[in-house]
Simulated scan of single mutants.
Amino acid sequence: MVAAPALAGVLAAPLGGPVAAAVVAAYTAVAVWAVRRRTRQRQQADRRATVLDLLSSAAADLRAGLPAQTALAELAPLARPGSPAPSAAAVPASVQSLVARIWAAVALAEATGAPAAEVLERIEVDARGDDRAAAGAAAQVAGARATSWLLAVLPLAGLGLGYTIGADPLPVLLHTPVGAACAAGALLLQLGGLAWTGRIVRPPTVAGAR
């Protein structure tokens, strides 16, 4: 993640000096972070959906009369007690807690003779309900999040407006102490605004356990 902002700053330095290099590097770092975060969230959601599909299939197999060992074969590598656990990077926290609930239910069913299929189905219904609630919350805050990103790029429109009225704002902004101070202040305010908006509109984490 450090390489891309550094490279962008190096490329911007000959064109606009150190101020341009710092601003471009900061914006590039934010963009890279946003892309990586979005990619990670998508991968986590896909992994959780896969576990829920396996859970549904296992419950159906148990109801069909298959032995538990056969029905749960595909779930067995997912952190079953006594089996090699995948790396933490491969299994996000929401999936780890969901898998922990599954194996706790299976262990309880094996110990008490309770119908494991019904318990697993209830876990699946509960988990999918959590997913729907999280998706609904994310949809509710999508507009506010988009507005925060729009506000973050408005200074570019301000520069364009300056040129349309005959001013030349970039030399002042990039090559004078006052301009550098304004650029630094604007950058801090923008990053702080994005961080604060992200904090207040963050959707609730999908719960794997209650």
Rank of each mutant, 00 (worst) to 15 (best):
G185S: 03
V19A: 09
P155M: 04
L187D: 05
V141S: 15
L108C: 00
R42N: 10
G16I: 06
A100Y: 03
V10R: 08
V106Y: 01
A135V: 11
R202Q: 14
A137M: 11
G65K: 09
E110W: 00
R199C: 12
I165C: 01
L55Y: 01
A6E: 11
L98W: 03
D130G: 14
P92K: 02
A114I: 02
A71N: 04
R132T: 13
V10H: 01
V172H: 11
A25I: 00
L54E: 09
V178H: 09
L154S: 12
P81I: 10
A79H: 13
A139L: 01
A135E: 15
V35Q: 02
S87N: 09
A105V: 00
A207Q: 15
A134Y: 02
A107K: 03
A109N: 00
L52T: 04
D53K: 12
E74Y: 07
G162T: 04
D61L: 15
A45E: 10
A183K: 00
A207K: 15
A3C: 08
A12M: 06
A64V: 04
A157M: 13
V99A: 10
G65V: 06
G208D: 08
A111C: 01
V32P: 05
G162H: 03
P204K: 09
Y27A: 12
I200D: 03
V201Q: 06
A26H: 00
A114P: 04
W149C: 08
A117N: 03
L151G: 11
A12H: 01
T205Q: 15
G16N: 05
V178Y: 07
L156G: 14
P77M: 06
S87Y: 02
L189A: 15
S57M: 13
L174D: 00
L150E: 11
A139Q: 05
G160F: 08
P169V: 04
L150G: 15
S148F: 01
L62M: 06
P84A: 15
L191Q: 09
V172R: 08
Q69C: 08
R145Q: 14
G192I: 10
A134R: 08
P77I: 08
P5M: 02
P92I: 05
A76P: 02
V51Q: 04
A73Y: 05
L54M: 13
D168K: 08
G179P: 13
Q96H: 05
A142Q: 12
L72W: 03
A13F: 10
A85R: 14
R202G: 09
V206H: 06
A135W: 10
A13L: 14
A133Y: 11
L161Y: 13
G185P: 10
V99Q: 00
D131W: 12
G185A: 08
